[in-house]
Design a protein around this nucleic acid. Structure first.
Length: 269
DNA sequence: CCTGCTACCTGATGGC
DNA sequence: TGCCATCAGGTAGCAG
């Protein structure tokens, strides 16, 4: 479960499910999911606590409790599931038991994490996060300053969570395609006009994806549930060899710092 | 400080 | 069918 729109959609579905409710019990079934914390430490901190709010920061999901908070990060494959009864089944890493059901954090690959912290900023990852791209703080001016200060390829800057929080591999590729900018273009060599385009496409692509992710809304009761229709809105990601919808060129895939970049060599400069 | 590389895990998929 | 290589939406940690 991955980038900002998906996490935001999960937050919105989870909120009515757990807000105001007490975590009666927490079970850590795979200790790796809470590493480097100890399972007992997590359990002791959150059992008996009430969930006061469900929020998102970058790709982190935050459960604010009446004392401290739980932060979840889904990395590549993490997911949430909900059981209406205490009977849980399947691979669950961490289970949060409420009065009316159980919330499970699932991640077969064990990249995802669940931590308890006194304050969100006690997480180095959260503390370091950059601007929220769907907030009012993400102004063109702020974006232009970020670009000017970096000599890295555009795509790496877009994916840098300490600069902009929430863009990942899919949506950075998509935003660049929409702005007709090459993933390897040096950030500090982007012209003002191009910066304006990219700023707009970042916001547009995230809004569009969020719209898609919330219709239909995530259904944690369905274990097989996953976001539908996202491929429909993607123009380059995963489309190696296909025709570019804008200029008819062939979409290329190349590796950039270990991650797949998809772009159209015909119209992205 | 900035940047780039690797490790961390497991499952799905495709070529031979 | 079986095996092997490759790929996957992310980040932390470390070295230069």
């Amino acid at each position: 479960m991955p980038e900002l729109p998906e996490v935001e959609a999960v937050v919105r579905s989870l909120r009515p499910l757990v807000r105001g409710k007490k975590i009666r019990r927490c079970r850590v079934l795979h200790a790796i999911a809470v590493r480097p914390q100890q399972p007992a430490e997590l359990r002791r901190a959150i059992e008996g606590r009430r969930v006061e709010a469900v929020a998102r920061r970058g790709k982190y999901l935050l459960l604010r409790l009446d004392r401290g908070c739980v932060i979840l990060h889904f990395r590549l494959d993490g997911q949430l599931v909900w059981f209406d009864t205490k009977q849980i089944c399947g691979h669950i890493d961490v289970a949060f038991e409420f009065g009316d059901g159980v919330l499970g954090f699932v991640d077969r690959r064990h990249f995802g994490r669940v931590h308890w912290l006194a304050r969100p900023d006690d997480s180095r990852g959260i503390r370091a996060l950059g601007v929220e791209p769907l907030s009012a703080a993400f102004t063109l001016r702020r974006f232009t300053e970020l670009l000017a200060a970096s000599r890295r390829p555009l795509k790496l800057l877009l994916m840098d969570q300490t600069k902009i929080a929430g863009l990942g591999n899919i949506y950075s590729n998509e935003a660049l395609w929409r702005a007709r900018l090459h993933p390897r273009r040096r950030a500090d060599r982007v012209a003002p006009q191009e910066a304006r385009r990219l700023h707009k496409t970042i916001v547009d692509v995230l809004r569009r994806a969020l719209e898609c992710c919330t219709h239909p809304a995530p259904d944690f009761r369905d274990r097989a549930w996953w976001f539908e229709g996202l491929e429909r809105i993607l123009r380059v990601y995963g489309r190696k060899g296909e025709r570019c919808r804008r200029c008819g060129g062939r979409i290329r895939r190349s590796e950039l710092s270990g991650r797949a970049s998809y772009f159209c060599p015909g119209c992205q400069r």
